[in-house]
């Protein structure tokens, strides 16, 4: 069993989830509470990875993260290294690929919150920033948790984007889905089956958790 691939998968899913929670919360807040020029365009752009084939996303990520691309060049100047075929590279790819799954549930949770609670906080003297942390976040825990779980699961399942951006370097970019693909390619069904089977309880447990959160929300 390729424990290293499982380790990289879980590490990638965890890092992606942590980063996306921090990035997506203010984006979801802006989308839920503000009206601004180009809001629909921005929202559609954020949700675009959901509608595109992973290979298309992977292709454009290779372009911008490659040595001549904007992000790749900047990274090269700062660190002297390359983003492609590295764990950092697949983390960036995974974040971009999963961003809709973080923003959408969070935006829904923020939008659902009774606006009068925010007004009550303002009248009680809280700034918008403090209201975000003391009122919005604590009252959107279920939505935030659902977003985190969805991102985590989506990152575990990523394949095409990661293969294109990271290749298959054991311990660095070779995740479980790639390990399964390679094992099948080599007709090693036993190895593929072991990794595949190990992912099922993880994914199932997290989906159960989402259901429980949704049930709690409905009550």
């Amino acid at each position: 069993m390729d424990f290293l691939a499982l380790y990289v998968t879980l590490k990638l899913a965890l890092v992606t989830t942590i980063f996306l929670m921090v990035i997506a919360a203010p984006v979801a807040y802006a989308l839920a509470y503000y009206r601004f020029a180009g809001k629909s365009f921005l929202e559609a752009l954020i949700y675009l990875p959901m509608a595109l084939p992973p290979t298309v996303i992977g292709f454009y990520l290779i372009i911008i993260m490659g040595p001549k691309g904007f992000i790749g060049k900047t990274w090269g100047m700062l660190t002297g290294g390359s983003l492609l075929f590295t764990f950092v590279g697949i983390t960036i790819a995974s974040i971009i690929y999963s961003i809709p799954f973080a923003v959408q549930p969070m935006k829904a949770a923020f939008s659902k919150l009774d606006r009068r609670l925010l007004e009550s906080a303002y009248v009680l003297g809280l700034s918008k920033r403090k209201t975000f942390f003391r009122v919005i976040i604590p009252n959107s825990v279920s939505g935030i948790a659902a977003a985190a779980i969805l991102v985590f699961l989506h990152s575990i399942g990523a394949f095409g984007v990661l293969l294109m951006v990271g290749g298959s370097i054991p311990g660095e970019t070779k995740v479980a889905s790639i390990a399964i693909y390679e094992a099948v390619e080599m007709m090693n069904y036993r190895a593929a089956g072991m990794i595949a089977l190990s992912l099922i309880p993880i994914s199932y447990a997290f989906l159960l958790l989402i259901n429980k959160l949704n049930e709690r929300n409905r009550i």
Partner: peptide
């Protein structure tokens, strides 16, 4: 509103549920 320092009791219940 933050700087007016007033008390406001709303029509419906707006206590923080958490």
């Amino acid at each position: 509103p933050q700087k007016r320092r007033l008390g406001y009791v709303f029509q419906d219940y707006t206590l923080f549920p958490h």
